[in-house]
């Protein structure tokens, strides 16, 4: 009897513990697998873009791609110069930012330093709704409301133009800029403000000369996020700025962006493996590299100007 008990005892006491440890290990591995899916996504994106662009660049030289000023891959004599698409992207981005950065920054300073808590509680969600509206709805608004409105003072404005697309895009970006900038400014310690007030500065002087510089790393991160949004925005420009790849720096003309080109081409039926099919991946690679440059720039700016309290 006692022999049997001795034999059984390790299994009775150890079995639950082994099962329990095993279960813990399995759960951890499953969770790790889920977390690694994000790395797989990044690898997938870069892999697909580089793979398809590679076959594209075997037929079109990279130098031609970067320097030719005409983009007409669907014509008889196709030409593959990405410059017009990049110029369209940059013009709409600059128009959007020249609206979003001043308005977003002023709104952020006002909400953080001047507004009463009650106003802030109301205004913040209202601004965040702006970021939640589907972009195709903004495209509709830019094309059928803002453009006709702009045509009253500017009668020569064509129906598709980068100006109205950029302006509406700027409105859409305001909440991205203002909400992150405001968080950065509210994180500035109160004693810096108190020190400034003690020296006789007004609230405005404190906001502009103490709080703003102290929060500059967060604010520049907000700007960078705004730039990435503007560069990658698709539906507003596809609807309101047109689908013609034209090399122009004038926002009052129509021109396609990189994203608008991809949307325009994929609306039709693209045979897999054709050169046209590969162009969208080459264009996508340029887009990813542009956003990547801005992101890295933002990273360094943030590090460079970070203030340690």
């Amino acid at each position: 009897m006692s022999e049997k008990y001795l034999k059984l005892s390790p299994t009775i006491h150890l079995a639950p513990r082994i099962i329990r440890n095993l279960r813990e290990r399995i759960v951890e591995l499953l969770l790790l697998g889920a977390a690694i899916s994000s790395i797989a996504t990044t690898i997938g994106i870069l892999g697909i873009l580089i793979y398809e662009s590679f076959s594209f660049f075997q037929q079109v030289s990279i130098i031609k791609f970067l320097t030719d000023t005409e983009w007409s891959p669907l014509f008889e004599n196709p030409r593959y110069g990405v410059v017009p698409l990049v110029s369209g992207t940059l013009v709409t981005t600059v128009v959007a930012l020249s609206l979003a950065i001043p308005l977003g920054t002023i709104a952020a300073i006002y909400l953080s330093e001047f507004a009463s808590p009650k106003l802030r509680e109301i205004a913040k969600p209202c601004l965040e709704i702006l970021a939640g509206i589907p972009t195709v709805v903004y495209g509709y608004f830019a094309y059928l409301f803002v453009t006709p409105l702009l045509q009253i003072p500017l009668p020569d404005l064509p129906g598709s133009n980068m100006l109205s697309a950029g302006l509406v895009m700027g409105i859409m970006i305001i909440p991205y800029v203002s909400s992150i900038s405001e968080d950065a400014m509210r994180a500035v310690p109160v004693h810096l403000r108190e020190g400034s007030y003690a020296m006789g500065a007004t609230r405005l002087q404190t906001a502009l000369r103490v709080v703003f510089p102290a929060a500059i790393s967060g604010i520049s991160a907000a700007y960078i996020l705004g730039i990435s949004r503007a560069v990658g925005e698709t539906m507003i420009v596809a609807i309101a700025a047109g689908l013609q790849p034209i090399l122009t720096w004038n926002p009052m003309e129509e021109a396609a962006t990189i994203t608008a080109y991809i949307v325009g081409v994929t609306q039709g039926d693209l045979p897999h493996g054709s050169l046209e099919y590969q162009t969208i991946f080459a264009a996508g690679l340029v887009l990813v590299l542009m956003t990547l440059v801005f992101n890295i720039l933002g990273h360094f700016l943030t590090k460079r100007y970070r203030e340690v309290y």
């Binding site: 977390a35 690694i36 994000s38 790395i39 996504t41 990044t42 997938g44 994106i45 697909i48 873009l49 793979y51 398809e52 996020l225 990435s228 560069v231 990658g232 925005e233 698709t234 994203t259 991809i262 949307v263 994929t266 969208i280 991946f281 996508g284 887009l287 990813v288 956003t291 992101n295």
Partner: peptide
Amino acid sequence: IIEINVTNLAGIPSIIYGLLALGL
């Protein structure tokens, strides 16, 4: 790496995900 990845993925334009889906 996972941390940096998640931050970066949030900044990639949505149309790029479309290209990934088309190719993959």
